[in-house]
Design a protein around this nucleic acid. Structure first.
Ligand code: SF4
Ligand code: SF4
Lengths: 151, 151
DNA sequence: TAATCTAGGACTTGTGAGGTCGTATATGAG
DNA sequence: CTCATATACGACCTCACAAGTCCTAGATTA
């Protein structure tokens, strides 16, 4: 439960890889290194590129590069590029009202929890994935009202 | 993505309902009130009872009651009772090692995020779901190291 | 012009969530 | 006593979606 998709997982691995590696890397290269199905990795990278997180270079000797610096891309960015908006409840996105929407008694509290999660994802940058922070020493506390992140 | 299951959702609604209502309530009663499939609601409640979050009374005029006070049950308790341990990654539980486990470069950072999420869920009590806190005024900040909550 | 790469749609497969059914058992009311 | 109303629980069905495959087109370089 609350698990993120494999594609998103792959995406994060690729981003972390690109954050370290200078220059560009091809889909095949990354896929083989992490034992990810090549075609699937390609698709994931394409999506990241389409969402402006990566820049792509076509043709032989082509590949992908981070579009911004690794400190400027959050894992929330990556996840949302792959899986769409993060939503804890079925009702959170647009008018996706589940059958219980009208009578629901837990909607607001759950949205608040959702904000905490999105906030946590937004504050963790790809750079932190790459050079895995040694000990999470003194990180900024997550404040509830700190996330105006909703879609 | 990162959505919680419908069953968990139903469970939280039921818990919030029971937190308000004095005495006990039957599965059918709750199911009808929130337009939840009766048989499914029953199953969810049974599971909550088996995990010690509810006490059940069989037979006519039977039903369910909160086993503890609403301030003593967290939404993490409820979710875990229904869906098992909260895990952001496929590898988080026991030896559920996905194919990439060996070469994975994002495992640790993701677990840290997972801890933040679990922490948020553990700090929100069923009582807060019930009488939806007026404005989330001054809540304790979520600290990263604050969650020794793993399984 | 052949090899290598991205781009992207169409397709197949597998899994698990959501929901249903059937049956056994407990219990109070009439 | 027995009937209506509950919980208890396993087996089953169904269907959407995640994960993965395949195929074709177009860019780039050696
Ligand atoms: S049950 Fe309530 S919280 Fe869950 S999806 Fe429906 S409206 Fe949203
Ligand atoms: S890819 Fe890494 S983080 Fe994701 S499940 Fe596998 S081991 Fe865990």
């Amino acid at each position: 439960m609350l698990r993120l998709s494999k594609k998103a997982d792959y995406a994060l691995m690729a981003m972390a890889h690109l954050a370290l590696k200078p220059g560009s890397a091809s889909a095949r290269e990354i896929a083989e290194k992490y034992e990810i199905p090549t075609e699937l990795m390609a698709k994931v990278l394409q999506r990241l590129a389409r969402h402006g997180l990566l820049t792509s270079q076509q043709g032989a000797r082509g590949g992908y590069t981070l579009a911004r610096t690794a400190t400027g891309i959050s894992v929330a960015d990556v996840i949302q590029a792959i899986d769409g908006p993060v939503s804890v409840t079925a009702c959170s996105t647009h008018g996706d009202r589940c059958g219980q929407f009208a009578k629901c008694n837990v909607r607001d509290p759950l949205w608040r929890i959702s904000d905490i999660i999105v906030s946590a994802l937004s504050k963790t940058m790809v750079s932190e994935l790459a050079n895995d922070v040694p000990a999470a020493v003194e990180r900024a506390p997550i404040q509830i009202a700190a996330a105006p992140v909703r879609a």
